[in-house]
Design a protein around this nucleic acid. Structure first.
Lengths: 228, 228
DNA sequence: CGGCTGCTTGAAGACTCTCAACTTCCGTGG
DNA sequence: CCACGGAAGTTGAGAGTCTTCAAGCAGCCG
């Protein structure tokens, strides 16, 4: 952790050095990039961007938490992903259409760094390694997104929930903390809060998990969980 | 269309010049790349790759059709995407893990060009524009994948089917041809062939579509279709 | 023509959603 | 620090949607 001061123009470096797509560069190069970044703060509930807004910047999450979601015609929210510090979003805009198609909302007070498209483009030419890193990240995300589709398309809610919990486990840990509300979790897994609640109870009845607190769940039997 | 001859070592150029990620380059540069590409033919039903196989090449579809699908633990197929001539796959491997996680199967007799990872990597450094194009393609695919997840997660089968049909429509056309079997369509939409069959009948009963032949469907009312 | 695969149709049952009531949690303001 | 209000979460009952299993039909290739 850094000191809890706000972003002076020097401390942009924190942002840049945080993300995998930049932190492999030399200090000098990072300083180069940091000079172009702008820091911005959002209060809980505020939106970083919304659909229809023009999209021309890369958003790097410094502190806080952000949720990205779609809104269907029928008015349903679909949680696409959660950003943790070090994650970034908005990269679509750097290569394609210039209009956002999703909502990005701060879940808690949040600090981000913003890199404008016009500032970033030259960087890609200057430091080709950045492109490789971005492609790596794209590749990872695409992979994850396709797996998520498969999961939602082929498995029942209980199995989706089980996979989600197991993926949340850290090595050597047997307890997980839900990173989001159960409402959001339901949206992410393509179901409803009611069903999430019931399935968690059901898993607990069968001894596979224990609901320690609201957001804290102990995994008692990983193997059985994956067989659900 | 080119002449229907098979790939001599000169005609690799066809492959390279086909795909969006390369066809913006000069003839000279494309020839440079084409020299590294290897052509390969697959019969209907054969696999380009399978899970667990090491993955170290970019596959560019020249002629034919390929389907990419996952297999869940429960043994269900989930169709991830369909490749048409000019599409490519295997790019994951170029940046991340070196093991395939999906099946790639020729739906009909198919010709592809293969670019080895070790040959491609230097190209990215030599022609940075290629990276941009690949990122653009990644971005498009990620976008599509996230939309597909949203669709499967939030909409009923009838609505998913409706969206699929509408997206298949060409400008000015009011008839579509299903590019795959209804079995695959069911898998792609996260349902069963039986349900697809029923929902198509139901849409027809309501006058929104007409099933001309097995694979040919006339769209009678686009707006109503999207409101399903 | 036989056989295989894909497609359709029917009926029963499983799973999930919806709606509504109730409880718990948490931040705010007194 | 406690009380309050609103949001989140839980629980129950009933209604739909979708899957599954089974049987029959159709199309295609050897």
């Amino acid at each position: 952790m850094e000191s809890p001061t706000h972003c002076h123009h020097r401390s942009h470096k924190t942002c840049v050095s945080l993300v995998p797509i930049f932190n492999h560069l030399s200090d000098e190069q990072m300083a180069d990039i940091a000079a172009l970044a702008r820091s911005k703060h959002y209060k809980k509930g505020e939106f970083l961007y919304q659909p229809e807004e023009t999209s021309d910047a890369l958003y790097i999450l410094n502190q806080g938490m952000v949720r990205i979601f779609h809104l269907t015609e029928s008015g349903k929210e679909q949680l696409v992903r959660f950003l943790q510090p070090g994650d970034f979003t908005g990269e679509m805009a750097l290569f394609r259409s210039s209009v956002h198609e999703s909502f990005a909302q701060a879940v808690k007070d949040t600090t981000i760094c913003i890199l404008k498209r016009e500032d970033l483009q030259p960087l890609l030419a200057k430091y080709p390694a950045i492109s490789l890193k971005i492609m790596e990240e794209f590749s990872r995300r695409l992979d994850q997104s396709e797996k998520q589709t498969t999961l939602v398309a082929t498995e029942k809610v209980e199995a989706r929930l089980a996979v989600f919990l197991v993926e949340l486990m850290e090595l050597g840990e047997n307890e997980v903390t839900l990173p989001m509300s159960k409402k959001d979790l339901a949206s992410y897994l393509g179901t409803t809060p009611e069903t999430i609640s019931r399935k968690l109870s059901s898993l607990e009845e069968n001894g596979l998990i224990t609901q320690v607190t609201n957001k804290r769940i102990r995994i008692n039997d990983v193997d059985a969980l994956l067989l659900v």
